[in-house]
Write a protein that binds this DNA or RNA. Structure first.
Lengths: 196, 196
DNA sequence: ACCTGAACACCGTTCAAGT
DNA sequence: ACCTGAACACCGTTCAAGT
């Protein structure tokens, strides 16, 4: 009944996709469930996207925007190269339910042609995030704050791993896990590992 | 046509479940696909298990056995507390396709009653593995090899995170990622982070 | 005791028809 | 231009019937 413009619907769909995947997982993302949330009928979704896959892609694009925005808003402004990473880790709480979407989709990838589009989009996304983290670390490596022989891209993946492993544990314990306390310890370990 | 005993079928099903989830993901695990692999009809599966969920559980039980076996066979025998962990990391290659199953299932969990059984089984599994890693680290902490103030359970999760983040990157790049090189760097960082 | 085949509810997608 | 409703192939599961 609502009859919205394609533009608005597409955005609505992308938002709803992220919410459903974040809270209930890919397995529970069904066209009927998605349509119900927008108060339309499942087949109406196909007016705006050609497939479920395309809708997931739209969700990923939105997610990337959101995460990059966090980086942009908290650009390095001090001499400390680790400062922006620390801040990103702290902010993680705010977009935790969003972060869960990323590994959920990544770990559903198969070595299969059907998933190749999804995989490529994930890779671009991941490359952007890791690139951002690497760049920050590289700065610290050059100004002597971090080890000269530090492999900054490996370190960037390790840093991202803090978020992934805390999310994994959070899922497995059904929420009964002190994510903030773990991140604090993991951050201390990370600093020790990369510092001079 | 084959007509095997329930005992043998159950084992066959558990093995096939791990193979399918590991290679093609949970999304591609269908009863028709599973049945075809065993050369029976989908409904025949329900003679041996009451649901798809139960079949996944059986797969998880088998996976736990396999991973614990690796720990058992490479029990600490030197004074170096990090030695068994290093060896586990090296062996990871051998059971890589198995390891992928764990995060795949973990990141499909939802905050949903239907998934509670799966979640609990994952948690027991994860607790066992982390417990094993923690115990090793604890030994090193007591004999003075590692930092006195090391939070061994956080460190154990970080260690497990090396496997998870390398698997994540492997998936995202479609296999175009040097897992062994990354693990080497990540291990160096880990040693630096936990050592005295 | 194990397996097959028909049946049912559900999901992704298409298409003709409504406003 | 956007949405609905019927239709189809596919999946998880049940159940009666086969050997």
């Amino acid at each position: 009944m609502p009859r919205l413009s394609t533009e608005k619907r597409k955005e609505q769909i992308a938002i709803a996709i992220l919410e459903i995947i974040g809270n209930e997982g890919l397995e529970n993302l069904s066209m009927p469930a998605l349509a119900k949330r927008l108060d339309i009928v499942p087949s109406a979704l196909y007016r705006h996207f050609s497939s479920k896959e395309e809708m997931i892609s739209a969700g990923l694009d939105l997610l990337k925007l959101k995460i990059m925005d966090v980086f942009d808003r908290h650009e390095a402004d001090s001499d400390d190269a680790l400062e922006p990473l620390k801040r990103f880790l702290d902010l993680h709480r705010q977009f935790f339910h969003i972060t869960t979407v990323f590994p959920r989709i990544a770990f559903s990838l198969a070595d299969n042609e059907t998933f190749d589009l999804r995989r490529q989009r994930m890779q671009k996304f991941h490359d952007s995030v890791l690139g951002r983290i690497s760049a920050t670390l590289e700065k610290g490596r050059r100004n002597g704050q971090l080890r000269k022989n530090l492999d900054t891209s490996a370190a960037a993946l390790s840093f991202w791993g803090i978020l992934v492993s805390s999310t994994l544990r959070w899922f497995i314990t059904g929420g009964d896990f002190d994510v903030e306390a773990y991140k604090k310890e993991a951050w201390d370990m990370f600093v020790r590992a990369v510092s001079k």
